[in-house]
Amino acid sequence: MSALRILVPIKRVIDYAVKPRVNKAQTGVETAGVKHSMNPFDELSVEESVRIREKKSAPGGVEDICVISAGPAKAADVLRTAMAMGADRGIHVDVKEGEDLEPLSVAKLLKAAVEKEKSNLVILGKQSIDDDAAQTGQMLAGLLGWPQATQASKVSFAKGDLVEVTKEVDGGVETVRAKLPLVITTDLRLNEPRYASLPNIMKAKKKPLVKMSLGDLGVANERRLRVVKVTEPAPRQGGGKVEDVDGLISKLKELGAI
């Protein structure tokens, strides 16, 4: 089996525990001074890559785990976190604050990176928790003409470059088998990401981190969607509490729910 050269795209997003607020101009959500971290699904991708190496589950071994992120200077922080978790090196594609790429542009950028880095496995999160688009992995697979296994909850390897992936689908799970090269997107139950230890955080500072521009990868930030406005959802008013089960039943009847 070929040795794995894994590319792990990661995104810096507003931390999952923060409740985002729409900005006054209604052009987006407030990001200044808001805690950011690695997209939770991308942590799963990094963890899975590192586990494939540690558990020696791929017959050909793991030659390289490269993490890549496109974003402002601070995207380098999440790349360092991924390296502290066990990735070998990072690529930071510098994109100015507020000039975020759409998934199609990210997929084009990743295609160029895959070709440059000679990757044969790309592991992405199934969606980013900011835009909630759930597109990039599938688009990348389409552009490369590679098979795709989305929403993976289990990944295993066999001889002959075969990878078996169990995917979460509506109503249960489905298992597919494909030959490398392959694009996988991760779902929550794939693994439990580790915390980076302090010594590993220190070591990660010495790992190579290359800075690139979109131009270096031959990609332009071409926007197809114009955000007309961003608004708060209609607020939901709590209806208060009832004392007991009878109160609950009569209130539900009053509301026409039962």
Binding site: E102, P103, L104, A107, D132, A133, A134, Q135, T136, G137, Q138, M139, L140, A141, G142, L143, Q148, T150, Q151, K167, E168, V169, D170, R224, L225
Partner: peptide
């Protein structure tokens, strides 16, 4: 925006060079 639609349409969009609008 089901498991089927989510896995299929972005791949279609990429082949058409179109930026999908999800969900």
């Amino acid at each position: 925006h089901t498991a089927f639609g989510k896995s299929l349409l972005p791949r279609v969009a990429a082949l058409l060079d179109s930026q999908q609008i999800s969900d």
